[in-house]
C-alpha cells in the first residue's frame, strides 16, 4: 500500500476501499441527474406531447450497433480489471485501450447520426422530442468522452504498475455510462411504445 495522503484515506471501516465507496456515491448522484432527465422525457411522452412520434426517425440500426459496441467495451474493461488483479499489467493496458477504442467507435457513429440529422434540417430546436434527443445523448456522450480521457490517464499509470485499483473504479463508471445508454436507447430509438 502506498503511504500517500492522510491516514484517513487508508482507513476502511466499512470494508470497502475508500475509492470504490466514493465512486459508488458519485454514481448514485449521477443516477438522479439522468433519472430526472429521463423522467421529464417520459412525462412529456405519456402526456402525448406533439413531436414524440419523431422517435420513428432515429436510426434504430445505428443505435443498436452502438449498444453492441458499448456493451462490448464494458466487457473489455472488466477483462482489464481482471488482468490488473492478476498483475498482468500489459494485458490490462491493452484491454483499457480496447475499451477506449470502443468509446471512439461509439462517438463516430454518434457523430454520423448527429450530422445526418443536422444536415437533414433537424436540430436541437425542432421540437421537444429532438431537444431531449440532443440533450440526453449529448450529456451521455460527454460522459463517454470524460470516461475515455480518464481511462487514458489511468492506462499509463497501470503500465508503470501504479494505482491498479483505479482500473476497477473507471470500470464501475464505464458500466454506469453503459447502463444510462441502455435506458436512452429504447426511449429515443425504438420507436413509439
Amino acid at each position: 500500500m502506498s503511504l500517500q495522503g492522510p491516514i484517513a484515506t487508508h482507513r476502511m471501516r466499512t470494508g470497502i476501499p475508500t475509492g470504490r465507496l466514493a465512486v459508488w456515491w458519485g454514481l448514485a448522484s449521477e443516477i438522479f441527474i439522468f433519472g430526472g432527465l429521463i423522467m421529464c422525457f417520459l412525462l412529456f411522452k405519456f402526456n402525448n406531447a406533439p413531436g414524440f412520434e419523431d422517435a420513428d426517425m432515429t436510426s434504430t440500426a445505428a443505435g443498436a450497433f452502438n449498444t453492441f459496441v458499448l456493451l462490448t467495451s464494458s466487457l473489455s474493461i472488466v477483462l482489464a480489471h481482471a488482468a490488473a488483479e492478476k498483475g498482468d499489467i500489459q494485458a490490462s493496458f491493452r484491454y483499457i485501450w480496447f475499451t477506449i477504442g470502443g468509446g471512439l467507435v461509439f462517438l463516430l457513429v454518434k457523430t454520423y447520426e448527429y450530422s445526418s440529422k443536422i444536415y437533414g434540417g433537424i436540430t436541437l430546436t425542432e421540437n421537444v422530442f429532438w431537444s431531449f434527443y440532443f440533450t440526453a445523448t449529448g450529456l451521455h456522450a460527454l460522459h463517454v468522452i470524460g470516461g475515455m480521457v480518464i481511462m487514458g490517464m489511468i492506462s499509463f499509470d497501470v503500465r508503470k504498475n501504479h494505482n491498479l485499483q483505479r482500473v476497477e473504479l473507471i470500470g464501475l463508471y464505464w458500466h454506469f455510462v453503459d447502463i444510462v445508454w441502455i435506458f436512452l436507447f429504447p426511449i429515443l430509438y425504438i420507436a413509439n411504445f
Binding site: E30, F32, I33, G35, G36, L124, S131
Partner: peptide, 25 residues
C-alpha cells in the same frame, strides 16, 4: 442533497438551453 438535486441539475441544463439555444422545454 445528492438524491434531490439531480433532477434540478437536469432541469438547469434544460432551462439554460431554453435561454441560450432556443429550445422549448
Amino acid at each position: 442533497f445528492m438524491a434531490s438535486v439531480g433532477p434540478l441539475v437536469a432541469g438547469a441544463v434544460m432551462l439554460f438551453f431554453d435561454q441560450r439555444l432556443g429550445t422549448s422545454f
